[in-house]
């Protein structure tokens, strides 16, 4: 693996940006009065203005009663700011080193948690950003005898369920949090980070299923 990257210093800014990211997407300050709202994704994501129509009813630019491809187009358009804003924030916290901090915290946990060596930390973080990067680095780890064949299979199980997690979730998934109910309120009231945490837990769970399966299979032989 790349030695320089392994030893890259993780400073206080990196840890702070990781904490910021967690707080920002957790919805913790979503209902906070005053300036604390600045620490919340949905507050800063804002809302569309309303168009007053017939009978004083208010509508967004999508209107009502649309269907098919045309409605799909306008509806998708209404999701795009959320996707742009979510990825912009993710880019900033990544730039500030949030993922390096996460790697630092995770490395000693990988053996007990997943049964794979700490040297896979960099590949693990990369796999959360890009499925292809994770795949390439996993092959390299095996070729360089950093991991055994069984460890590669366990690591693949971790990566295969919800691959490219951060990028896919905060790009495509963020759109789901842009949905609004008929009265204009947010339809999905669960904070953005909750399904993300559930996904991460199941990734670990899935890898452990593979781990036990391989153990059981080797005992049989």
């Amino acid at each position: 693996m790349n030695e320089k990257n392994e030893q890259k210093k993780v400073g206080i800014v990196a840890y702070l940006s990781l904490i910021f990211a967690i707080v920002f997407f957790s919805g913790f300050f979503a209902k906070a009065a005053g300036w604390l709202g600045v620490l919340d994704f949905t507050v800063l994501n804002g809302d569309y203005g309303k168009i007053i129509g017939e009978g004083g009813k208010s509508f967004t630019f999508r209107g009502t009663g649309g269907y098919g491809a045309k409605d799909g187009f306008l509806f998708a358009l209404n999701l795009i700011p959320t996707v742009m804003f979510a990825l912009a924030v993710v880019s900033v916290v990544e730039y500030l080193g949030a993922l390096d901090a996460a790697r630092q915290l995770l490395t000693p946990l990988l053996r007990p948690l997943l049964g794979i060596p700490g040297s896979t930390g960099l590949a693990l973080i990369a796999s959360l950003q890009s499925t292809d990067a994770g795949a390439g680095m996993t092959k390299l780890l095996y070729d360089e005898k950093e991991i055994t064949n069984d460890e590669r299979t366990i690591f693949a199980a971790f990566q295969f369920t919800a691959g490219g997690t951060i990028t896919n979730y905060f790009a495509t998934g963020a759109a789901l949090f842009a949905l609004s109910a008929a009265d204009g309120s947010m339809a999905v009231t669960v904070p953005l980070i909750v399904p993300f945490v559930v996904i991460m837990i199941f990734k670990v769970f899935g890898a452990n299923l593979m781990r036990f399966y391989l153990k059981a299979a080797s005992k049989k032989q």
Partner: peptide, 9 residues
């Protein structure tokens, strides 16, 4: 990042 979001969007 926002541009990346626009492209994905």
């Amino acid at each position: 990042g926002a541009r990346k979001g626009w492209n994905i969007g």
